[in-house]
């Protein structure tokens, strides 16, 4: 049987290069593919080490395995919001006001919000197992929750519409305001809890005795999720570029149609 089986995905009229582009993904490059494969390998490692190879903890038993997911997601979320703040500053204070920085800020915030949601969920499940409660009004937890809500608001502002530059400027200002807001929230919550309550919930990793394999699993998790973050940001900001182009193209088409209409009217 040497007859070529028609690709079920191919639509009549698309040529071979379009099909291969569709398969490869328009936002990918050689670098991003290598990065993606490395990420996948490390995520598989994370699952293997986190669930199978690493030993259960003496006090926490197997609930300690949540740590290999929880700590890396938290780290990536903070990293992502840091990148958003930095890119916002780069957009605002560089003379060029390059939209590329704005797209990096937006992509990073979106990914950060997702990782932060995962941090909160996995953290509360872990908290239920080790502390007995899903939530505690600890300074770090409260700040994290505020960070989440703040960046949900940031994403809502990005969707307000207007020109790309208007969006960029508005969200860059908000991105920088978030950077000054978070220390204030943390400071006030810390002051509140320390004034009124005996030592709050212990540092979650403080009571875990880390042996070598546990530390290694955590390390794999951190690397895997960091790589995943870079892969996602790379693709997300390229997708944003395409979406911006698409908007502009739409606008151009609408303008041309409009001009044609008015010409017809004036002729009639």
């Amino acid at each position: 049987m040497s007859t070529t089986v028609p690709n079920p995905q191919s639509i009549p009229g698309t040529n071979a290069s379009a099909v291969s582009r569709r398969w490869r993904g328009i936002t990918s490059t050689g670098f991003s593919r290598v990065l993606g494969v490395a990420t996948l390998v490390l995520v598989v490692w994370l699952v293997l080490f986190g669930l199978l190879f690493s030993p259960p903890d003496q006090t926490q038993q197997s609930s300690v395995r949540i740590m290999y997911i929880h700590v890396p997601t938290a780290w990536v979320a903070y990293l992502a919001f840091g990148v958003t703040g930095l890119s916002s500053a780069m957009y605002l204070f560089r003379r060029a006001h390059s939209l590329a920085w704005d797209r990096v800020a937006g992509a990073s915030a979106e990914i950060g919000v997702m990782f932060m949601a995962l941090t909160l969920i996995t953290g509360s499940l872990w908290g239920r197992l080790t502390w007995g409660v899903y939530w505690a009004w600890d300074a770090r937890l409260t700040t994290t929750a505020f960070l989440f809500v703040t960046y949900v608001g940031y994403l809502a502002v990005r969707r307000l519409g207007g020109s790309h530059q208007a969006r960029a400027k508005r969200s860059a200002v908000l991105g920088l305001l978030a950077v000054i807001e978070i220390p204030l929230v943390h400071f006030s919550v810390e002051l509140w809890r320390s004034l009124h309550q005996e030592a709050s919930v212990a540092n979650p990793s403080g009571d875990v005795k880390m042996d070598g394999l546990m530390l290694f699993s955590l390390f794999v998790g951190l690397i895997a999720f960091s790589l995943l973050y870079f892969w996602l940001v790379l693709h997300r900001q390229r997708a944003m570029y395409l979406e911006d182009q698409y908007d502009d193209a739409d606008l151009d088409v609408a303008l041309v149609e409009r001009r044609a209409e008015t010409k017809e009217h004036s002729r009639a």
Binding site: G25, I26, V47, M114, L118, T122, L232, A239, Y246
Partner: peptide, 23 residues
Amino acid sequence: CYALTLGSLLSYATVLLRRARRA
């Protein structure tokens, strides 16, 4: 925790690539 985290990251990546293709 593992299923939720890996599942949502995977679906985010999938949706992202699909949106990029459409745009």
